[in-house]
Every structure is written in structure tokens, then in C-alpha cells.
Amino acid sequence: MVEIRNLFKKFGSVEVLKGLNLDLRAGQVNVIMGPNASGKTTLIKSILGLVIPDKGEIKVLGEKIEKKWMYRSRIGYMPQIAHYPENLTPLELIRMISDIRKGDPDTQAIIEWLGLEAFLDKKLRYLSGGTRQKVNATLALMYDCPILIFDEPTVGLDPVARLKLKDRIREERDKGKTIILTTHVMSEIEELADQIIFLMDGIIYLEETPEKIKESQGEASLERAIARILESQKTSIDA
């Protein structure tokens, strides 16, 4: 459960978040979507404490996160593209994280599940984008965290891995975890989303279940419904 109240963030003169109010509930996949530069990543980074909001409040599992850091032990995070120290191997990376976070990580099963065994001793710089994403996924999932954040998780993954990951996300949701997912891939949204949060220009443009969105726009497919929303938005700007 993540609660966001009146969140503002400016980068220089650019206002990225303009007073966000949002509840990301447990036991559902919360998909955050929106055009580029709509504030998705900033929102996620704010939850993680990588970005410090100018104003507003974030509560993770009922606790304010401002100037806190322990709460991060209850979040599994899979960042957009793996930006990791290039000189390390996946194994070292996994060991390091488990060394820092302590606890009892379930790495072996995830490595086998993703088929990473063969790459564990290779330096990250020699790994393909997809393999790096798998390493990313391992780091996010190796702890049993009540909150899981995936930032564009399937980019670069092969179809098999993509399927596996989607299944896993569903499983985790069914365990009652709070899943936060950003993606541009409509099919994934259709498949996974329990709640859609549509960000645009730093505000929540829409917060609904996929069914209701389709219903409201009178479209059978979510993709079309959303396209319509964007279209109407554009017209209103043009007007």
C-alpha cells in the first residue's frame, strides 16, 4: 500500500508533478501509464526516495518515507534499463545486494527460473540488454517484499522470459502484494492491469479499472479507448 498526497516536483523550471494524489493498493497491479515525460519515472523514484519531492507526502505501508531509508527493505525494484557497475558480474551483484540487505533471499530459484546460470560469472558489460534485464528482475524479486516496482520490465526481454515475468507478476499480486508497473505495451496493460493510472503533464488524468475505461469510451479494446482519450485531450488543447 502506497499513499501519495499532494505531491509536487520541479526540475529547474519544469514542473513534473503537480499535486498528485494517489493510492496504490495491495493485491492489485497498479499500472502507471502516460506519454513520455509525463512524470511516471519521477513518481516511482519519489516512492523509492531517489527523487526528493518539493511538497507533499508519501506513505509506504502506512509510514511516511521522508528522510527514512529502512522502508526500502520492503520494496523490490526493477529499474528501467540496467545501469549497473560494468565491472561486476551478476553473481557479485547479487551477493552484494544480499550482503547489504541481509535477510534470506531466494536467489537460486529465480536464477534457475530465468535461466541465468550461464551468465553469472560474466561481467555485466559483456551481457546483452535482455540478460541484464533478467539480472534486474532477479534483484527485484530475490526478496519477498510486500511492494514490487517494475519500470518497463519487459523491454528487451525475449518472448519466453516476458511470459514468465508476467506470470510471476500475477502470482505476486495474488499473494496480496502491491505491484506498481509502468509500461508502454498495451497488451501487457490489458493482460495485467487491475487499476490504470494515467499521468499527463504531471497530474493524474485518469484513475480507473480497465473495464471502466473501455466502457466510458465505448470501445472494446483498451488500446483504442486510451487512444480516444489522448485524441480528445489533443483536441481540447488545440481548441
Binding site: G49, R72, I75, P85, I100, R101
Partner: peptide, 16 residues
Amino acid sequence: NAREFTELLLAQPIRR
């Protein structure tokens, strides 16, 4: 150059 490393650590439960 350590920026990536820093970002990785920042998402972990460690004080800044």
C-alpha cells in the same frame, strides 16, 4: 562513472 552504482545503492535500504 559511479553514477549507476550509486543509483543501484540508493534503491537499497541504506542511508544516503
